[in-house]
Design a protein around this nucleic acid. Structure first.
Lengths: 248, 248
DNA sequence: GACTTTTGTGACGGAGCGTCAAAAAATGAC
DNA sequence: GTCATTTTTTGACGCTCCGTCACAAAAGTC
């Protein structure tokens, strides 16, 4: 039994090593550059050994995405634990999203890969479930803030929306803007100079539009965000630091 | 000169044929299934001939995406030509987006490919410019509605936002929701049963939040949308019909 | 009809995927 | 410590696809 555990630990160690080697290849040189032969060569193992850990390279990508989503989840957990009104705590989640995109940009990029059908379709049910769970967890964390707002009488989710559908709007807004920012060739040339500020303004308007108390002006919102960030970012950084970073 | 034109027409005809053959392969079987050998075989030409038209398969994908974006643009053009207040015309653009995603779903999917860096990076400057132009055109069309609202005194774009950044919010919201809907494993299991209705509600709230006149209740919004769709969808359909469809 | 230019062809070198029979290492019974 | 058995590792192999290029065929020109 002890024997078995030692072996299993060794296997896990090597699995982690495969991911550690694969990550910079994927991030710096793209999916096409990530080949099983190359990973094997770099680790000084035969290709077959790598295949004992991952049945294909798509599975490696998904495994990396799981790590990224877990980091996101940890940031969210910290964010919703912030003190303050429900609305301020929702802003903290926004701050977490901004932090994740800006300061964990590698993870943000890796997380994107799950939206690629080519990859998704070749991966195991098992790991797909892991992803879904993580996504569900994140959703639940944000939903809990909405629920708190509702039960505190600070927010009423109006007519056709359920609470998760309310969250979906914020999710779509933030996520959509980040995708467009990353992938849309030259937003600046069509007049969008600061997408982050723009989306903050839209979030403010969205939450004010739903009359989530306390209502805020743009200036109030900005200064609240400022002080939130001063409190949270050091903690976000230490959460991020628990992961080893990728060399360039 | 006549000779040259006949030849060029022939070349263009074949280019179109390559796209016609490639589209269903890409859509039904994915990017990996789209190989130059296969396209060549299916067209009964040698591979080299296909390479005379497209330097790689990524370029084929981008060419397909250009077609898709042009369809979107045509729908937008029709939408903003709708009669009514600036706000209603903006809703018409929303209806066009919904139509595009739902009834031109192949094009919607094809359009996504441009967000894939693996593909984008292997394509020619030239075609990338085409895409950017088309994206800029769409943006400009929507911006013109905003501009009309402003000059009619029905809308004020508030403090930190420029008009394009205002549009960016709607774009991110609608686009983000559609991406999530398409790619997020089982939204229903996290409580989002009707993402289309949800996003409509968010758009309503967003536009009301910016006090775009006339303000609307959910019921008014829905019935306005209903009548807009009754007027527009037949026209959208005929715009769509100008393109040949893809067999399943 | 002969010569030039354009266009089409498909064999080829190179690379990556995933497999599998054989080699090597680990295990444990005696 | 030995040896049979089980587990793990290995890398050559078959396959597919990419993109090229020397050559062949067709079209155009005079």
């Amino acid at each position: 039994m002890v024997e078995l555990t030692r072996k299993q630990r060794e296997i896990e160690r090597r699995t982690a090593e495969i991911l550690r080697v694969s990550r910079p290849i994927l991030l710096r040189e793209g999916f096409h550059a990530l080949s099983m032969d190359r990973v094997a060569a770099q680790m000084e193992y035969a290709k077959g050994t790598i295949y004992n850990h991952f049945p294909n390279k798509e599975e490696i990508v998904l495994a990396l995405a799981v790590e990224a989503m877990q980091l996101r989840r940890r940031l969210f957990e910290r964010a919703i634990a912030a003190t303050g009104s429900s609305r301020v705590r929702m802003m903290a989640v926004g701050a977490a999203c901004e932090f994740f995109t800006e300061h964990c940009s590698d993870d943000f990029v890796v997380e994107q890969w799950i939206r690629n059908n080519n990859i998704w379709d070749k991966t195991s049910e098992q790991r797909q479930t892991l992803i879904r769970e993580c996504e569900g967890n994140c959703m639940a964390l944000v939903s809990s803030v909405v629920a708190d707002g509702v039960s505190a009488g600070e927010l009423t989710v109006p007519a056709p929306l359920s609470p998760p559908e309310f969250v979906f709007g914020l999710w779509a807004l933030v996520y959509g803007s980040q995708i467009l920012t990353r992938s849309s060739p030259s937003l600046a040339s069509i007049g969008i100079y600061d997408p982050v500020i723009a989306i903050r303004a839209h979030c403010l308007n969205l939450l004010n539009g739903f009359a989530w108390q306390p209502l805020m002006s743009w200036d109030e919102y900005q200064s609240q965000m400022q002080s939130l960030q001063e409190r949270l970012i050091p903690e976000f950084r230490s959460i991020q630091a628990e992961r080893q970073t990728v060399a360039p």
